[in-house]
Each structure stands twice: as structure tokens, then as C-alpha cells.
Amino acid sequence: MTNNPIITTEKLIKKFPMGKGEFLALKGIDLEFNEGEFAGLIGPSGSGKTTLLNIIGSLDTPSEGEAMVLGQPVSQLTARQAAQLRKEKLGFIFQSYNLLAVHTVFENVEFPLLLLKYTPSQRQKMVMDALEWVGLTDKVNSKPPALSGGECQRVAIARAMVKKPMVVLADEPTANLDAANSHNILKTMEMLNKELKTTFLFATHDEKVISYLHRKIFLIDGKIDRDELIK
């Protein structure tokens, strides 16, 4: 596509042990992503979207082939190097928001910055900026149980974005949200993609998400069926 991909996968295969044999979840995936893409892996349940996203996010390793993420070969990374990569360059958004229930909105968003050892005043500013992006500055001191689903997912977006990662990986981010909230957070992410040039990579089968994507990669049965570039 271009000469400067930030993520490439090459003949990526993922096998899971199943009974006596094994199950092929990914059957040779070749993909390239450039900086600033707003792309999605689309496919029916069980097609391998999460598996692929986890490997790109260095949460899992390929069985064969390689995934190069921001210059790093995922299959070669030690646990420590993988953690380092996630800490510095990747943001995650999940279907179940995975917020820390006993911590305030501020503290939840602050957590990645603690790992990166920012000073308190830097953290203060960065967290408030991130909460402003998602429109939640009035809820800094609330705790997740007191928030709506849409608000929770916006906190999760702020948490993923606060360190301004190169890539955000979002696995079914709208699955637990109603239409209005889904559009709301998708607009937020679209805006961040535009303003901060952050690369977004989704896994989804939600039509609402699909309608926002600039690139649609259709997965069926662990293989790429189509790869469509919009606009």
C-alpha cells in the first residue's frame, strides 16, 4: 500500500490445542497498516478477529509467521519487552470496559501514566486533557459503578488515549452500548484519529462501527476474505 507500514503480519498462523489435535484460528494472515488508519476487522463470531487483535497487541503470540508491530517482531519478544511495547505505544479498549471499580475516573485514566512514571503535575494535565476529549471533565471524581455504560466506555477511551499511543486496539467497543452512545464514542474516536493521528484498529461485527471505518477487512474462518479501502 505505502512504503511505511507501522504494523505488518506475514503468513500469520494461530493454532489452539483442541482435544487431541489442534484448531486453526488464523490460517495465514498477510496485512499491512499505515500510521493514522481507522480500520476494522469484520467477521462473524469465531472468525478470528480477537485472536488477530491480541497478537497485534502482543497479548498473544503467533504459532507461525510473524507480526511486526512498530518495528518489533511479536513472536520474538520476551514478556518484559511485550509489556514495554504495550506500555509505551499501545492502547486497549474492550467490550467490557474493564475499569477499576474502586478507583475514581481520574485514577483510572491516570493509571497508564503511573506506569510511565510521569510527574504528578504532568499526569494532572494529561488526564484532564484526555477527559476533555471524551467530554467527561465533570465526572473526574466519580467511580465507575456510578457511571452509565456509555460514560464507562468513554473513560476507557480516555484511559487508552491519555498517553497518546501510536495504536489503539478496540475489541467490540460498542457491543454493550445503545445506538446513541455508540455513535457518540465512535465520533470521539474518529476525532482523536484525525487530531492526534492515532491509528485505530477495531474488531467488530457492529454495523454502526463498520459505517465509520475507513478500511474494512473481512475475516471468514481465519482467512482474509476482502480488504476494502473507503474514500
Binding site: 518484559r80 511495547l85 504495550r86 506500555k87 474492550f94 474493564n98 477499576l100 493509571f111 497508564p112 506506569l115
Partner: peptide
């Protein structure tokens, strides 16, 4: 699990 998972995902070492 959720807390530990998210901490690991955010790059905290095991």
C-alpha cells in the same frame, strides 16, 4: 481477573 488483565494489557509487567 479484570483488574489484573487490564494492568497487564496496559503494559505492567507480570
Amino acid at each position: 481477573y479484570g483488574e489484573i488483565g487490564i494492568r497487564l494489557a496496559m503494559g505492567e509487567e507480570k
